[in-house]
Structure formats: C-alpha cells, structure tokens
Design a binder for these strands. Structure first.
Length: 423
RNA sequence: GUGGGUAUAGCUCAGGUGGUUAGAGCGCCAGGUUGUGGCCCUGGAGGUCGCCGGUUCAAGUCCGGUUAUCCACCCCA
C-alpha cells in the first residue's frame, strides 16, 4: 500500500516541539489574565465575504492566499487566514455592547494561507490573538503593547525590536495619500520597481515598505505619515508613545510600517526578531487599531484594537525543552507481577505521582536503561521475591541509593524521596 | 506565482573522474555470568539509494522528466 502523506504546509507537531506550543499557550493564558483578558473560541471556517470585507478585497491575502471553496450548497467558505475578522463577527453576533464598556478577548488557534512554505511560514500556522473592543483611549493602545511586551518577556525572548507607527484616520490619511502620490509623481517613473509603479495608484501606502533598494533610495525624501497626522491622531499617537516612554519599553518609530490588512488605522506596531535563527520572516507579532471595522461588518460603531503573535516564528526562538520528567518507573521481572505492578502504578498515579510501568517482562538491565533514558526519578523492582516478602526495592536513579520498602509504605517513601530531591 | 538547493538506514549525513556483497555517527535491540541504569566494550536488526524513463557491458554516481522537501522572492504572524 502506498502511504498517505500530509498536505503540503500542514504540520504535524510532536514532542518535544509540541511542548513549545503548550508553553506558549499556557504563558499567554497566565499573562493575559493579569490584564483581565479572557479566552474565546471562534470557528476556523467563515463565509468568504467576511474576509473580503474586513481584510480588504485588494490585499494579497484575499487576492491569492485564501483557502476558499464551495460547500455542498455552493456557498463560498474560507479557512480563516487571520483571526480578527472572525472575532469581530462573533463579537457582533454575541455581545450586546453598551457604550463605554470595554471587552478584552484572546484566542489561540490555527490560521490558513495558501503560500509557498518557507522558514517561519506554513500554510497552516498558529496564532495567539488579542482583541480589545470599546476603548477609544490611547491608554488602551498602550496597555495592549505593554501586555504583548510582558508576554514576550515571560517567554524569555531576547533580541526583539518593537516598531511603531501611526497610519492616521479616515480624515487625515487620504490627505497624506494625496501628498505621497504627488511626491511619487515628481520622481522618475522608471526609477521605481514595476510593483511600485502599479502600487502608486492602487495602494500608495504600500510603496513605503517596498524592499527594492532603488525604491528605498527614492523614499528617503518622501513625506512621512506622522508629519501629516491631524491633531487628534497626533495627540493620540503621542499619548501612546508617552506610555511606552514612561514604562521604559524600547521602541523604534518606523515611518514605513504599513500593515497588509486594510482595516488598520492610527496605531500600528510590529515586533521583529533580530536573532539569527529566525530566517527571513522575522516579524513575530503585529497589530494595531481598527476603529471602523466593527461598524463596517454590520455592528455598532465600537472601536477595536489588537495584535497577533505567530507561534511558529516564536517557536524558532525558543529552546527545545527536555522530555517530561516522570516520578517513577516500575520494572516488572515476572509474568505473575504484571497485574500487581499495574495495580501499584494505578495507586501511585491516583496519589498524584507521574510514571510508567513496564508492559512486559524484559531483562532488568534493559528496563533500567529505559528508565534512565526517559527521565525517571525513581525505579521500583517488582518480581516474585517482592510478592513473597511484601517489600520492594526503591532506587533513586539520580543518587543511586536504594532501600527496601514495605508495600504499604511506598507512597510516603516516594513522596519523601521526591521532596528531598527538590529541596 | 517566480528562483535556487536537496532527496542514500528511525535521525544527521559520507559515498573523487560510472565498476563486485552501499558506509559512519547517533538511536534501537541483545550480551559483557544469578534481579541493578548512566560511561565503556562486543554483537545484531534495519536501506528496492524519492519515483519513472534514458545513455552504458555496467548507474547511488551521468542525462531527461516527475514528486516531495528546504531556503529565498512576493506578502505576512
């Protein structure tokens, strides 16, 4: 039989790699709870229209990266390429938002984009996503970034760079865009790369983060968004920066940081890893404010903001953990002992001890080798002698010391062994 | 969608200019005298050399195709 292999870009996660994901998730739950942020779950599958309307029909994500297909009744459905759209949709459908009320949610799960896989990028990838609804105050933008930084710190990540920018609002952004277009018309058309010649009219902001050296050269003299914000946006942005300054979070203003999703306005930010094992896809988190989005998707006019962390990319920065430590291993030396050994293991596990019991009789040597390789702390030898004597050898594999213990004393003895080891 | 690299044991990889029974390290299994691990020693299992076709007396090695995978571009987390 030919074997069936996984779908391209859809990963299987096994230990020890999968342990990193558990670590990232548990840390997120812990840190986010300090901020009053609660976990929600929304579907992986949504109506295609949701993404077209929120992310933007002209974006690359919608144009060429979505897993879109028709179901049995010819409805166009899409595997979510990002989380925000679905969360906003769910918020509108489930939450009766009163004015001034603040909601803080986070969600963890897989996202899907049809792209060519490379380092730090898969077709099914995983994100940790935070969304705030309600607050229009820059205090919220600040807290969100603080929380993200707190989280990344809790993961003990180093060599990170926080990049921040403001994209303005529907009042001031168009004016800036006109200025930018005007600027681009003064430069020699041929000096721009073909992509930018096109972007110049379709999405002028994107010209700003073009990677082409020639374009970068030209853009040095381009007007910046920050210099062209309206007074409201300007003071909002300054208030966010004040929070970062006050809490001593290092950041870099990045005039060229424009996001690839249309819904962002005002504050946008991105965290870049500068360590060398991350590969070319070095943005590990990104987010910002999306005030018009809830209304645009048919909800109330409620402000929103959030960020996403790419778990695969963060995983590249984490040390792979060792195998799980286990408290005990019961070596079984005779067929007659298989049943009582299992029964003993059962008792120990119900006492909160972790461990394994051999499923078959093998040489003691090989069973000890197994215990040694699997991070077992204490080994018990269960053979026919023990059945008769009522005592069992208990060996501390780290120190090598060994005692004979009556069966009724095993639990207290093991707990004592494990305690002294820690203390 | 575009470009480049790689494909040999469970894993990481060696295998100049084609030439007998395809190797190493790690891992796995078993032994090194009775029921005691790690270190060390010995032995063993395990591969249609990604797949299809071509050149040749002879292909893991050369050529073509195909698939998979990695990396990069584009874009994004």
């Amino acid at each position: 039989m030919s074997k069936i292999t996984k779908v391209k870009g859809f990963p299987d996660l096994f230990p020890p790699q999968s342990n990193l994901y558990v670590f990232m998730e548990n840390t997120a739950r812990k840190i986010f709870s300090y901020y009053g942020c609660e976990e929600i779950r929304t579907p992986i599958l949504e109506k295609t229209e949701l993404f077209a309307r929120s992310i933007g029909n002209e974006t690359d994500i919608v144009q060429k990266e979505m897993y879109t297909f028709l179901d049995k009744k010819n409805r166009s459905l899409t595997l979510r390429p990002e989380a925000t759209a679905g969360v906003v949709r769910a918020f509108i459908e489930n939450v009766q938002a009163k004015s001034d009320e603040v909601f803080k949610f986070f969600t963890i799960g897989p996202m899907f984009r049809y792209e060519r896989p490379q380092k730090g990028r898969l077709r099914q990838f995983h994100q940790i996503n935070v969304e705030y609804f309600g607050p229009q105050s820059p205090q919220a933008d600040g807290e969100l970034i603080l929380m993200l930084w707190h989280y990344l710190h809790a993961l003990q990540l180093n060599n990170l760079s926080l990049q921040i920018n403001s994209l303005g609002c529907p009042q001031c952004r168009p004016i800036f865009e006109q200025k930018l277009i005007a600027f681009l018309q003064t430069v020699d058309e041929a000096a721009l790369c073909p992509d930018c010649q096109r972007r110049k009219t379709t999405n002028p902001l994107r010209v700003l983060d073009c990677k082409e050296q020639s374009c970068k050269q030209i853009l040095i003299k381009a007007p910046t968004i920050i210099d062209n914000l309206c007074s409201t946006c300007r003071s909002h942005f300054q208030a966010v920066l004040d929070i970062l300054d006050n809490t001593k979070i290092p950041y870099q203003l990045n005039h060229k940081l424009v996001r690839g999703l249309d819904y962002y306005q005002r504050t946008t930010f991105e965290v870049i890893a500068t360590s060398n094992n991350i590969g070319a896809q070095s943005a590990i988190a990104g987010g910002g404010r999306y005030d018009g989005l809830v209304k645009n998707l048919g909800g109330p006019d409620v402000p929103g903001l959030g960020f996403a962390c790419g778990m695969e990319r963060i995983a590249l920065l984490l040390e792979v953990q060792n195998n799980l430590q286990k408290d005990f291993f019961i070596a079984v030396l005779s067929e007659k002992c298989l049943l009582p050994a299992m029964s003993l293991a059962n008792k120990l596990r119900h006492q909160g001890l972790s461990g394994e019991v051999s499923f078959e009789v093998k040489s003691l040597k090989s069973q000890l080798r197994y215990a040694n390789k699997h991070n077992i702390k204490i080994c018990l030898f269960f053979g026919e002698d023990e059945l008769h004597s009522g005592k069992i050898p208990v060996k501390d594999l780290e120190t090598g010391t060994q005692h004979e213990v009556f069966f009724e004393d095993i639990i207290t003895t093991l707990k004592r062994f494990l305690k002294t080891e820690i203390g």
